[in-house]
Every structure is written in C-alpha cells, then in structure tokens.
Simulated assay, not measured.
Amino acid sequence: MLLGTHHVVIICSDYQRSKAFYTQVLGLKIIAEHYREQRDSYKLDLALPDGSQIELFSFPNAPKRPSYPEAQGLRHLAFKVNDIDEVVNWLRSNDVECEAIRTDEYTNKRFTFFNDPDDLPLELYQIK
C-alpha cells in the first residue's frame, strides 16, 4: 500500500528564476541537477525536510496550463510549517505576496496561499 509522497513535479517557464525561488526563497536543498541536452531541459531534484522531493523541470516552449481554483485536477501543493507568521514574513520580505492567514474551520489550523513564479498555487499549513 501507499507509504507517503515521494515527489511532486513542477514544469516551470523560467528555470533560473524558479530555481532561485525554490532554493533561495523557500530554502529547499538541491539533491541533484541535470541538463538533458537531447531535450534542452533541466531537471532539478529538491529535498524537503520530511524526505519528500520536488522535481523542477524546464522544457522549451512548454504550454501554459490553465489554472482555476475550482477546476478539476491538482489544485495546489501545501507545505507544513511550524510558525506560519514567521514564514509569511520571510516570504513577504522576499517580495512574495501571501493571502491573509485564515483558520481551517474543521481543524482549527492556520493556513494561507501564495504563488510560485509561474503562478502555481502553494499553501502554507501550520501543523502546531
């Protein structure tokens, strides 16, 4: 049976900009980085503290994916945090806009949303 999430894949429009966002702003560690000449594509493996990974890909002329909050399919990627106020302040100090922090009516946990450089919706979810 399933044991957890191993990785999530993100295809970006500007590899260097997204690499800087995920490593410098979000603080993810690089596991491996590969340039695939035959595809003119980068693959960047990034580690999250719980052992899961984000694979960041670039492809020339990749089509944009329409994203609407309630469209079918994957809606957003959520990151666990201990102190949401600290992370939101860090993001804002790096010119990343965040929505107002809300409280989940079912769990009483605090959360907010922000976007990566390609407007992929990302969530912070306070676990404590």
Rank of each mutant, 00 (worst) to 15 (best):
M1F: 08
M1C: 04
M1A: 10
L3C: 03
H6Y: 12
H7L: 02
V8P: 00
V9T: 14
I10K: 03
C12P: 11
S13I: 00
S13D: 14
S13A: 13
Y15C: 03
Y15D: 01
Q16E: 14
S18Q: 08
S18V: 06
S18F: 06
K19S: 06
Y22I: 08
T23M: 10
Q24M: 04
L26A: 10
L26Y: 11
G27S: 07
K29A: 15
K29V: 12
I30N: 03
I31F: 07
I31M: 09
A32K: 15
H34M: 11
H34I: 11
Y35C: 11
Y35I: 10
E37G: 09
E37R: 10
E37A: 15
Q38H: 13
R39H: 13
Y42D: 02
K43W: 11
L44R: 01
L44A: 01
D45N: 12
D45R: 11
D45C: 12
L48H: 02
P49K: 05
P49Y: 01
P49A: 05
P49E: 07
D50Y: 00
G51S: 02
G51L: 06
G51C: 04
S52T: 06
I54A: 00
E55M: 05
E55N: 04
F57H: 14
P60K: 11
P60Q: 10
P60M: 09
P63F: 01
P63N: 03
K64P: 04
S67Q: 15
Y68E: 13
Y68R: 11
Y68P: 00
P69G: 02
E70F: 14
A71V: 02
A71S: 15
A71Y: 13
A71R: 13
Q72G: 09
G73I: 09
L74N: 01
L74S: 01
L74R: 00
H76G: 06
H76I: 07
L77R: 00
L77H: 00
A78P: 07
A78V: 01
A78Q: 04
A78E: 04
F79Y: 12
N82A: 10
N82Y: 08
D85V: 02
E86L: 11
E86K: 13
V87G: 00
V87W: 08
V87R: 05
V87Q: 06
V87E: 07
V87K: 10
V88H: 03
N89F: 09
S93P: 02
S93K: 12
D95S: 14
D95C: 05
V96P: 08
V96D: 08
E97M: 11
C98R: 08
C98P: 05
A100Q: 12
A100G: 00
I101M: 03
R102I: 00
T103K: 12
T103H: 03
T103S: 09
T103G: 01
D104S: 09
D104H: 12
E105N: 12
E105K: 12
Y106L: 14
T107I: 02
T107Y: 06
T107S: 15
T107V: 04
N108I: 01
K109C: 13
K109E: 09
R110E: 04
F111M: 05
F113Q: 01
F113K: 02
F114R: 06
F114C: 07
N115L: 08
N115G: 07
N115A: 13
P117A: 12
P117Y: 11
D118A: 11
D119R: 14
L120A: 03
L122E: 02
L122W: 04
E123H: 01
E123I: 02
E123A: 03
L124C: 07
L124F: 10
L124M: 08
I127D: 04
K128E: 14
K128L: 06
